[in-house]
C-alpha cells in the first residue's frame, strides 16, 4: 500500500477502518511484546499522555497510544504492518511521562523486532544495518563533521571504530551471528533488485 503522508485525509481513512473482531486478536502477541520489551504493556489504560509527549505525533499519523492499544488487544497484523511503526524517534518522552510506569518506547522496539522476523522493515533501516556493518556507525563520519570536530579541538575521527578499525571484525561477528547482514542484503535485493 502506498504510503500517504497527507493529514487529515489519511487519518480519516485510518479511522474508518478501526473495527476489530475476535479473530484479529492474537493473545500470544501481547505475551511476546511483554517478553521482549520487559515492560507491563497490558497495564495501559489509554490516557494518551504518551501521544501528548510525542514529538513525532504532530508531524505524522503515528500515534503511540494506538500501538499500545494494539499491544493490549493482541492486534498483531495491525501493529506489525502499519508503516507508522517505524516513525518513533525513540526519544523516550512517553516512557518518562507514562502514569502507569510502562515503557511505550520499548513496546515499539519489541514490535519492530517482531516485524523484522516477518521481513517487514523499511529499506532505510536496512541501509543503516549495511552502514554499521561496513563502518561501525549508523551515520558514518563525513568531511563536514570532521571539519567541525577539528574546529572544536577534537580529533578528526571519534575514538570509535572510525579511529580503531581493527575492532570492526568483532562488530561484524555480532551482526553475522544474528544473520542481520545476510537478511538485510536479501531484503534489499528483493525490493530493489
Amino acid at each position: 500500500m502506498a504510503r500517504t503522508k497527507g493529514y487529515p485525509e489519511a487519518l480519516e481513512k485510518k479511522l474508518h477502518d478501526q473495527r476489530y473482531y475476535r479473530e484479529d486478536s492474537n493473545p500470544e502477541f501481547t505475551t511476546k511484546v511483554k517478553g521482549i520489551s520487559r515492560t507491563i504493556a497490558h497495564m495501559c489504560y489509554q490516557c494518551g499522555t504518551c501521544t501528548g509527549s510525542c514529538p513525532s505525533a504532530p508531524r505524522s499519523t503515528y500515534r503511540i497510544r494506538n500501538f499500545m492499544r494494539r499491544a493490549v488487544l493482541g492486534l498483531e497484523n495491525e501493529a506489525l504492518t502499519d508503516p507508522d511503526l517505524w516513525l518513533c524517534t525513540t526519544c523516550y518522552s512517553c516512557t518518562d511521562r507514562c502514569p502507569r510506569d510502562i515503557a511505550p518506547t520499548d513496546v515499539i522496539m519489541a514490535m519492530r523486532n517482531l516485524a523484522f522476523k516477518r521481513d517487514i522493515i523499511p529499506v532505510n533501516f536496512l541501509k543503516t544495518v549495511t552502514a554499521i556493518y561496513s563502518s561501525g556507525h549508523g551515520v558514518p563520519n563525513n568531511d563536514v563533521n570532521r571539519a567541525a570536530r577539528e574546529k572544536l579541538g577534537l580529533t578528526r575521527d571519534p575514538p570509535t571504530t572510525h579511529m580503531y578499525p581493527e575492532y570492526l571484525p568483532a562488530i561484524r561477528k555480532i551482526i553475522d551471528h544474528y544473520k542481520l547482514k545476510a537478511n538485510a542484503d536479501r531484503i534489499i535485493k528483493e525490493r530493489e533488485g
Partner: peptide
Amino acid sequence: ILQVENSETSEILM
C-alpha cells in the same frame, strides 16, 4: 502550549 491527542479521533490538538 499544550499538545493533546483526542484519543477518540486520534487527532492532535495544539
